[in-house]
Nucleic acid binder design. Sequence first.
DNA 1: ATGAAAGCGCTAACAT
DNA 2: ATGTTAGCGCTTTCAT
Lengths: 328, 328
Amino acid sequence: MSNIREIAKRAGVSVTTVSRVLNHHPYVKEEKRALVLKAMEELKYTRNIHAVHLAKGYSNMLGIVLPTINHSYFSGLVTGIADKAQAHGMHFALFQTGYDPLKEKEALMSLKERRVDGLIFCSNALNDQDILKWQESGPIIFCHPTDDICSAVSIAHDQAFKEGLDHLVACGHQKIAIVLARTEGANSESRIQAYREKMHVLNQEIDERWIIEGKLTLFDGQQLFFEWQTMKSQPTAFMITTDEVSAGFLLETQRHNIQVGESPAILSFQNEQLSEALEISTIDIPIKQMGQEAFDLYDRAQKGKPPEKRVLPYRLIQRNTTVLKNNR
Amino acid sequence: MSNIREIAKRAGVSVTTVSRVLNHHPYVKEEKRALVLKAMEELKYTRNIHAVHLAKGYSNMLGIVLPTINHSYFSGLVTGIADKAQAHGMHFALFQTGYDPLKEKEALMSLKERRVDGLIFCSNALNDQDILKWQESGPIIFCHPTDDICSAVSIAHDQAFKEGLDHLVACGHQKIAIVLARTEGANSESRIQAYREKMHVLNQEIDERWIIEGKLTLFDGQQLFFEWQTMKSQPTAFMITTDEVSAGFLLETQRHNIQVGESPAILSFQNEQLSEALEISTIDIPIKQMGQEAFDLYDRAQKGKPPEKRVLPYRLIQRNTTVLKNNR
DNA sequence: ATGAAAGCGCTAACAT
DNA sequence: ATGTTAGCGCTTTCAT
């Protein structure tokens, strides 16, 4: 591979001039530029990006941390981030952790090594604080609500959660179960808290088995149906934080011909095409926008601006799996 | 940030020794190693990965080219690749192209610049040949069948396609439509060819509108239903290359209460959880394995081994959307 | 407008 | 087993 020195020699200029041409600097006489361009052409020159990175000290590479890419929530988030990143000429690397703290540490090491200029955490098993210690190595952005000093984009999960519960109550339900992905582990607490409070107000005793965690996929949703069937104290409504799970659950009730009156209400979160097609009531959250805002926060941090929190709107969409009972 | 020289000075050794410790070379006296390690600890040293890359000439970064990550086919493929890659200590970057040849060229440039050591093409808008010209810059792996000199992993699309058509015919169908994603643009030809041949044998005239392209999402599938309804010459069966589309189509027929006898047969490709949950007949293809094999092919190419083609098995799974009519 | 030269931080051939 | 030193290829300051 030819290098900048060979180009310089061939064009009869200095390496500095070549570098200037390469970086679109002003103050290069047009004829020299042409000479350089010609030499590059002839030698099929391409800059060695590692040398650029070493000299500049950064790499235009963003790291995205998530448990798995094979899930609509995360691939949606990545799509949002990627759209903006690519528009800014940034590349991005994925770190799939499977919620393994060690894998998250590897991502943080990549930040310290400068393999990536910054990190967007779409999920985390490590504590927020433990992660933020690494901020001195580069910007770190969260995609969940947090009180720590850092940039974060999120929706008001607990508020959305409460509104969802209110809706289910308004539909005449008291025995309500909640189903959490491990998507936002750190936040489960606040949601469960919101749940307990609401149930307390209703004077409804909580069966601890109504708090269900670790459900992420369609299969999980199908399995949930069977768990529901064997529950001693059956909830009449489910609040589920992921569309895939809701869909699996619903499809399984349909397959088993559960009577309309007996089939549990479902209120989902996310609003993918799937929940729309199945007419599942859901709380829409703007996932791609979250990704875009996450990138924007990275970009701002990169430019030295102070950290910022952004809270995105959610919107309850009532479809067929929650029905208002006016006559109660 | 401290560098290797400072560590050397502090530990009272040469930079070479530090480098040796860093790279786990043998022939370093235990006491010196300890000294070096201690110095690193004290100065919170981390190597600058750009310098390593520049000196070594490679980056342990693999590039994955795909139209969008937000689709189960591609996120499945990436999952397969990533599992293997991470096990080999490799990182990976995604190039989302949206089938844009220019974006694909950018990925190829990244290969030439050495930003990535190799490239796995999960889809391509450019010609195979145009892409393979860049092989001198690093290994390039395809995820579709090809006759060119390169490594590729695939399933025998056209054979699977024919078998699928046979199945539909055995179920009593003659008026069969095919629905292609643009997933494997280059291969559409061979599939359409297989389709024409089969239909010819059946003496079934083909309505050109039965060859439908560009369907990738659940929405696309729902839309397909309406297209079907307005067709003058309605096919009685659909062969669809993506589960999402099949699901959307099926759900829409169900929503419109199409009678069992009148609802078209559906034979899908892929076998995601979704098609299983909806009991859609499908031709299973081992997507994650494809990803794993793709990485393996990269790994072999990287080690200087000759290119290799791998063809993975497929398997027809009959469920509820294709029914054998024995009485015909 | 152009060039010389000093980095950027690490690796590895060579010498001892 | 350890050290010296010459790269790796580009950027950027400073001088002219």
